[in-house]
């Protein structure tokens, strides 16, 4: 089965989990709304009776933005703390929902059902939490440290150079290398999560190490699936940005239209994330060495899954109902 076919099936699976989309969007929107509320309060106090509101409804005002920044500069740390706190809550919620999401994609039905989802959330939370710590170390070493080392090397190398063009080309190359390493680390930990769910592993470190092996053994395919998903995300950005730019935003109706568009974009991003997971689950299932049984002790929870929906017994030869999805390679 080609990476493209995996990606297409992944999209199909993500399409089938609209309740999950909604749940993840709701989680995102509610948390963002908490951050937006104080901003609403401050803007309302500043603008509701000012003529400046009329011009700000039409277009961005550098005058107001500068004044606003100047006036509320002292509040910036509090705002950043609030956003950081929300970010942490979001991380916790994401750890929870990722377990549920992967459980949904790896169960026999591969459909969203509340019991499968919430059971998955609970089952994998602490494993994913441990994996997050391992991932932080990997990101620290392979992305942050690598970036630091490469930066200092580039600075040293280009110090006597008198042409900015050459220096920029080297700097861009450094950026590309770091971005590529970031993608690889990201892939490794995505597959580590998939592995923890499908193989019912418990050790985050083992999952990460085996995931590295898996990713590098199947580098072309894992990278291709990642790139397809990423391009899907870029496609949404390319569609959204010009649209948002050309739409008038000065009347109540258009402000609502743009708000809806923004939320559709967030839903699209949620869909892309789900496509990442579903494609990665499918790819992992298809490439797992001889469907080898899990080497670690299975978790106790899967036994409580509903019949036919155990995440520990994914059907590698699962195909969508006839007519619902692209043809699937029977060799899976």
């Amino acid at each position: 089965m080609t990476a493209w076919e995996i990606f297409c099936q992944g999209r199909y699976l993500a399409n089938r989990t609209k309740k999950l989309w909604f749940l993840l969007w709701l989680m995102n929107a509610l948390l963002a709304a908490v951050a937006a509320l104080p901003v609403f309060g401050v803007l309302n106090a500043e603008l509701k009776n000012s003529l400046m509101a009329a011009s700000l409804a039409d277009r961005f005002s550098l005058d107001f933005a500068g004044e606003f920044a100047f006036k509320y500069w002292d509040s910036l740390p509090s705002a950043l703390i609030l956003i950081a706190a929300l970010g942490m809550v979001y991380v916790v919620l994401t750890l929870l929902t990722t377990g549920g999401t992967l459980a949904v994609f790896s169960c026999t039905e591969r459909r969203f059902t509340a019991p499968v989802f919430f059971k998955g959330c609970g089952t994998y939370f602490w494993r994913f939490f441990r994996l997050l710590i391992v991932a932080a170390i990997f990101y620290g070493i392979f992305v942050v440290a690598l970036n630091g080392v490469l930066s200092s090397l580039v600075n040293k190398l280009t110090r006597p150079w008198t042409q900015q063009r050459l220096v920029l080309l080297v700097s861009w190359t450094r950026l590309l290398v770091v971005a590529f390493v970031f993608i690889v680390v990201n892939m490794v930990f995505d597959y580590a999560k998939v592995r923890l769910v499908i193989d019912e592993g418990r050790s985050a470190v083992m999952a990460a190490l085996r995931s590295i092996k898996f990713v590098f053994r199947n580098f072309k395919k894992t990278l291709a699936v990642f790139v397809f998903c990423m391009l899907l995300g870029l496609l949404f950005i390319v569609i959204y940005n010009p649209l948002e730019h050309v739409l008038p935003q000065h009347t109540r109706r258009w402000i609502i239209v743009v708000f809806v568009l923004q939320q559709l974009f967030i839903l699209a991003r949620t869909y892309v994330r789900l496509t990442f997971f579903s494609s990665e689950v499918l790819l992992y299932e298809s490439l797992r060495p001889s469907h080898a049984p899990a080497q670690e002790a299975p978790a106790a929870v899967p036994t409580t899954f509903e019949a036919g929906s155990s995440p520990s017994s994914p059907s590698a030869s699962w195909t969508p109902p006839p007519g619902e999805a692209p043809a699937i390679d029977p060799t899976i």
């Binding site: 951050a35 901003v39 609403f40 603008l47 000012s50 923004q262």
Partner: peptide, 17 residues
């Protein structure tokens, strides 16, 4: 006038999202 307030708050919310 709430249009500007709603417009820029929703934009901020979108950035946070």
């Amino acid at each position: 006038h709430h249009r500007a307030v709603v417009k820029w708050t929703s934009k901020f919310m979108f950035w946070i999202q």
